[in-house]
Computed example of a mutant assay.
Amino acid sequence: MGKVLIINYDICNGCYNCQVACKDEHVGNDWSPIAKPQPDTGQFWNKLHDNVRGQVPKVMITYEHSICQHCDDAPCIRSCSQDAIYKRDDGIVIINPDKCRGHQLCIEACPYENIIYYNEDLKIAQKCTFCAHLLDDGWEEPRCVDACPTGAMIFGDEDDPKIRDLIAKAEPLKPELTVKPRVYYIGLPKRFIAGALYDKEADECSESVKVTAANVDTGEKVTTETDSYGDFWLRGLAGGQYTLLFEKNGYLAQKFGPVDVTKRDINIGDVALWKS
């Protein structure tokens, strides 16, 4: 049975326990033949990023993890000229520190960013091992998972019914890739468009305005309503361009856009509405 890791962004609170636990387990500790010691600086085999999104005042933070995906069809394995990288029976991908010669081809081959690091002192490539040395010693999960206080990180066998149910709700980090990763994500951040609407004549916030975003290419629509402050958030958008439509009884329907969220989330600011 292969091991998988599921990270639930919906309940991650950005405490950094996972990152600290990884450092505590691997810095200064030689777990050969699984891994040589991780440097105390420069490497993060489990890295937490604070991704600040949007523009003031419509801002939100997503806590995102950078970790080896332990791909079933791992490009790093194919790229290694020394056969130093292998996949265990449980699916965990390991760089054998005794065989690695530091050619760094695996770093170039990995389709994910900042996953495999080069140790200048030891002249070897290093990365997350899912704490395979602990699993072999009887542990049921890696240190990062054990340290998570909210249960946002779940580790287990892919054939476990509970794990299968979670995988069904999750998705891979880069679904366009065909490398078959063993790390899944619940609540991966999608794009958002936010803003505020107000009655120009009355000079007050416009509540309960229907806001519809239509994807210019696909025609797919997402709808919400403004709150008592006139604010709206259109969440869960695929990247692309959207036109916005504002509608409320007694007011002129108003179009806005297109708004492009291909590369970033957008706050359109304050938009005035006019009575009909």
Rank of each mutant, 00 (worst) to 15 (best):
P175G: 03
P181H: 13
P181A: 06
R143V: 09
T150C: 04
C148V: 06
C148A: 08
M153R: 09
D159W: 11
K162S: 14
I154S: 04
L177A: 08
E171L: 12
L177C: 00
L173P: 06
I154V: 11
K174R: 14
C148G: 12
K169S: 14
T150Y: 08
R143A: 11
K162M: 10
R143C: 10
K169A: 12
D160G: 02
A168R: 02
K162W: 02
D159P: 04
P149F: 11
A168E: 14
I154P: 01
K169H: 12
G151F: 02
P175E: 13
R182K: 06
E158K: 14
D157R: 03
A147S: 13
R182F: 07
K174H: 12
E176F: 13
M153G: 02
D159M: 10
L177N: 12
I167D: 00
A168V: 10
L177K: 01
P172D: 05
R182V: 03
V145L: 08
K162H: 00
P172F: 06
A170R: 12
T178K: 15
D146N: 15
K174D: 05
K174T: 14
M153V: 00
C144F: 00
C144I: 07
I167T: 11
L177S: 00
L177H: 03
P172K: 08
A152T: 12
V179H: 10
R164L: 08
K174C: 08
F155W: 09
T178L: 15
E158T: 03
T178G: 15
L173Y: 07
D160N: 09
